[in-house]
Design a protein around this nucleic acid. Sequence first.
DNA 1: GCAAATTAATGATTTATTCAAG
DNA 2: CTTGAATAAATCATTAATTTGC
Lengths: 143, 143
Amino acid sequence: MPQAPSTRWCPTPKQLMILEEMYRSGVRTPTASQIQQITAYLSHYGRIEGKNVFYWFQNHKARDRQKLRRRLSRHHHLLHSCSHPHSLHFSEETFHSPPPPPPLPFYTRSYLTSSTGSPSPLPPPSHFVIVSREDAAKRQPED
Amino acid sequence: MPQAPSTRWCPTPKQLMILEEMYRSGVRTPTASQIQQITAYLSHYGRIEGKNVFYWFQNHKARDRQKLRRRLSRHHHLLHSCSHPHSLHFSEETFHSPPPPPPLPFYTRSYLTSSTGSPSPLPPPSHFVIVSREDAAKRQPED
DNA sequence: GCAAATTAATGATTTATTCAAG
DNA sequence: CTTGAATAAATCATTAATTTGC
C-alpha cells in the first residue's frame, strides 16, 4: 500500500526558514518570475511548486495583518478601559461604558443611488464647497 | 509631564469597522448632512468630529486609488523594472549568503537583465490558476 | 510512555472588493 | 452597466501539537 499521498505541501524547516527570511526582507506578493525563482531555489530542500510559494505569501501576509489588527484592537480596548477608572463601577454603565446598540440602518448603496428618495438629507449645496475643515464639506455623491 | 492631549483623532476599532462598512457600501464623498449623521452615529463609539469623517473618506478613497494605480503601474513597468536590483529586497543577500549547502545562484545579473528569460509558462498549472495572475506583475510596497 | 481525542496552525479554495476600460 | 485584472478576506480542510486516560 502506497503511503498516504499527502494531499498538501508541507514545508521543510529549511524551506520555511528561507521563506520567512524573504518575508522579513520585504517580500509580500512576489511576481510570477519571483515565484519561479523562489520555487526553483526551494526545490533544493524538498518538493515544492509555484502555487505553494504563492499561497504561502498570501496566507502569511494575511495572517500577519490579522494578528496585528487583533493586537491593536486589544490594545485600544485596554487603553480605554484603563483610562477611565470610574467606569469600574457597574451602575454607571448608563453613560459611556458600553455603547448600546444604536440603530445601524445607514447609508447603503441603494440609498445613494436612489437619491431622489432622500427626504431628510440636506440638498446638495453644490457649488461652493468645502466649507471649513470644521463641520463638514459638501459634495454630491459622484461615485 | 503633561499628558499628550493627542492632537489628532484616532478612530476606535469599532468606528473604523463602521466607516469601512460604509465605504464598502458605496459611500465615497458624503454630503454635509451625511457627514453630520455619520458623525452623530459614530460618536457613540468615541470622540469624533465632522471633519474627521470628511477627511477619512477623502483619504481612504485617495489611498485606495493610489494603491490600485501603483499596482497597475507595476504591471505596466514589470518587464523593465525587473532590471532594478532595488526592487528585489531579498536578492543577493538573502540567497547568496545564508543558503550554503545547495548551489543555485538566484537572482543574478543575467536574470535581472534578461527578464524575459522565463521561457516556460510559469508555475505548475495544476488544476487551478494562481498562475494567470502571475504573468502580470505585482510587488513591493505597502503590502 | 502511547495513542485516541481535541485543539491550534496553516495550506488551499472560494467569495467579495476595488478601479477603470469598453 | 458590464467586465477584466488583481487581490484580500473569509472559509474550508488537513496536518501538527497538545491534552488526556490508561
